[in-house]
Computed example of a mutant assay.
Amino acid sequence: MTAPRDTKKVPEQGRYTPAPSTPEGELFHYKPDEAARYLPFSGRKLRELAYSREIPHVNNGNSVWFSGLNIRAISEQFTVQPLAADKRPAALAATA
């Protein structure tokens, strides 16, 4: 009798992934786990946000991908800008 065959999918090793900010990276398609390296979300959370259409992504049939431009747009989407001086609470405006 032989040992049962391992049916777990082996992750890709050594796949070249350029940074999203490079010209080559703008059009490169990242898997959610690869995109998670550049964003403050896990790969699973990125998939959930994409399925609920809360973030920009590329839908390739059954797969969700992120281009470098998508990653930059997501980063900008969750960037919080500081309040203008006239909109700050009085306690913060007095220290500025």
Score class of each variant (00 low, 15 high):
E26K: 15
E26L: 13
L27C: 05
L27E: 10
F28V: 11
F28Y: 08
H29A: 08
H29D: 06
Y30N: 02
Y30S: 02
Y30M: 03
K31H: 10
K31S: 10
K31E: 14
P32N: 04
P32W: 00
P32E: 01
D33A: 11
D33M: 07
D33V: 11
D33L: 07
E34Q: 14
A35W: 00
A35K: 01
A35D: 01
A35V: 03
A36N: 02
A36E: 00
R37M: 11
Y38E: 02
Y38D: 01
Y38P: 06
Y38F: 15
Y38W: 14
L39N: 00
L39C: 04
P40G: 05
F41R: 01
F41K: 02
S42G: 13
S42Q: 04
G43F: 07
G43W: 04
G43V: 06
G43L: 03
R44G: 12
R44E: 12
K45F: 01
L46A: 02
L46S: 05
L46I: 05
R47P: 03
R47M: 12
R47T: 15
R47A: 08
E48K: 06
E48D: 14
E48M: 08
E48S: 11
L49G: 03
A50V: 07
A50T: 04
A50C: 07
S52F: 06
R53W: 07
E54R: 15
E54T: 05
E54M: 10
E54N: 14
I55A: 03
I55P: 00
P56S: 04
P56Q: 04
P56M: 06
H57V: 09
V58E: 12
V58W: 01
V58T: 13
N59F: 07
G61Q: 06
G61C: 06
G61L: 11
N62D: 08
N62P: 08
N62G: 15
S63Q: 13
V64T: 11
V64F: 12
V64W: 05
W65G: 05
F66G: 04
F66N: 03
S67C: 10
L69G: 11
L69Q: 12
I71E: 00
I71W: 00
I71R: 01
I71K: 01
I71H: 00
I71T: 04
R72Q: 15
A73K: 11
A73Y: 01
A73S: 14
A73F: 04
S75M: 10
E76G: 08
Q77L: 15
Q77C: 08
Q77E: 13
Q77A: 10
F78W: 07
F78H: 10
T79N: 10
Q81W: 11
Q81I: 14
P82R: 07
L83G: 05
L83Y: 13
L83R: 12
L83V: 08
A84D: 13
A84C: 09
A84R: 10
A84I: 05
A85Q: 09
A85M: 09
D86A: 11
D86W: 12
D86Q: 13
K87M: 10
K87P: 00
R88M: 15
R88K: 14
R88P: 06
R88F: 01
R88S: 05
R88D: 02
P89W: 10
P89A: 14
